[in-house]
């Protein structure tokens, strides 16, 4: 029995959201009489942090503390339309919609503040701590709470804003058929190192090193969490999980977590991640979206690493010990490839 080490890499070019025009999401922002703001969305936060990120985007655009913004999500009865949380579109699409809505609400808020302070709205600025003051004269100031109260009870205004983000339709070149399938791309490269046991066919992850270019990381800890967890899911797709191990024969399909395999805490490996921030021209504050791309490069990198380790090229996922072993036997033994 020998354990062979192998290293493989993969690069990806990842389009954010759905393509070719459309893919809309809407947001509504309004102030409450307390001067706090509510963002209404029907978009869903599945745990990736869209509530946190849209809250940051709204607060930053309005110029108020992040604590003053509440994000209400996931009810399509009360929230404006959203296509959904998939295709890594949340931060980019919903974030853009929230930004547009917050910008409109900010305009009304500044007008209401201008009326109270008896100045021109163009001369006002927010301090990011819940106050609006005259540029260069911070003592000429009013709190967002007092502006909200004045707007609601005195001026008869609603401090609110509407936002939608819609990807422009890509024109098709009649000669070539060429079009722009997406407006925003993220990129990544991942190197996986594995150890393949040529007697059992088992593949163990040794380490991963990756670099992700995903626009501006609006919340670096959430980005890191997504990349760490998503790589695990990539490993799981590469080596473990499938609902149809003997496709198309449904026999012996998994019925539960004992048979539907996923890596446990003992199967993970060290993963060193570098995040490169190149702001997207059409992203909210330059953000793209790390969503699904966190899992994608792992699969080809692991398949390449297995080839590098024992010389078998498996193109059918997941790469189970059985497939590795059969392939090694078919070629008459492990054939480690050159290491670079």
């Amino acid at each position: 029995m020998t354990r062979h080490r192998g290293r493989g890499m993969a690069s990806i070019n990842y389009p954010i959201g759905m393509n070719l025009g459309g893919d809309p999401s809407q947001a509504l922002v309004h102030s409450n009489p307390s001067g706090k703001f509510t963002v209404a969305l029907s978009s869903i936060d599945l745990g990736q942090g869209m509530k946190s990120v849209t809250r940051q985007i709204c607060a930053e655009t309005l110029g108020v503390p992040v604590e003053d913004v509440y994000v209400d999500t996931a009810d399509s009865d009360t929230g404006p339309h959203c296509m959904g949380s998939f295709a890594s579109r949340g931060t980019h699409r919903v974030g853009n919609a929230v930004m547009a809505a917050a910008r409109e609400a900010r305009g009304v808020m500044m007008e209401a503040a201008a009326e109270e302070l008896e100045v021109n709205a163009a001369d006002l600025e927010t301090d990011g701590r819940g106050n609006i003051h005259v540029k260069g004269a911070p003592h000429r100031s009013i709190s967002t709470k007092d502006v909200a109260i004045a707007a609601q009870f005195k001026q008869g205004k609603t401090i609110s804003g509407r936002g939608i983000f819609l990807v422009p339709l890509s024109d098709v070149d009649p000669e070539t058929g060429e079009m722009s399938p997406a407006t925003c791309y993220a990129h990544a490269c991942l190197v996986a190192e594995v150890e393949v046991d040529d007697e059992t066919g088992e593949v163990a992850m040794v380490r991963m090193d990756s670099a992700y270019e995903l626009g501006r990381a609006l919340n670096p800890r959430l980005v890191e969490q997504q990349l760490v967890g998503g790589a695990w899911m990539g490993v799981s797709h590469a080596l473990y999980e499938t609902p149809e191990p003997y496709y198309p024969d449904p026999a012996h399909g998994p019925r539960d977590f004992v048979e539907y395999l996923m890596p446990g805490p003992g199967d993970i490996c060290a993963h060193d991640i570098a995040v490169l921030e190149r702001p997207a021209p059409d992203g909210p504050f330059g953000a793209k979206g790390p969503g699904e791309m966190c899992a994608n490069p792992v699969l080809p990198a692991v398949a390449n690493a297995i080839f590098n380790a024992v010389g078998v090229r498996i193109d059918d996922l997941p790469i189970t010990p059985e497939k590795v072993l059969r392939a090694i036997k078919a070629q008459g033994g492990a054939r480690p490839q050159a290491r670079h």
């Binding site: 760490v228 967890g229 695990w232 899911m233 977590f257 996923m262 446990g264 805490p265 003992g266 993970i268």
Partner: peptide
Amino acid sequence: VIEAISGNICRCTGYEPI
């Protein structure tokens, strides 16, 4: 720690943060 949580499946985090 790994041994202690080895009976628990997590789908999101990749275990490392846990």
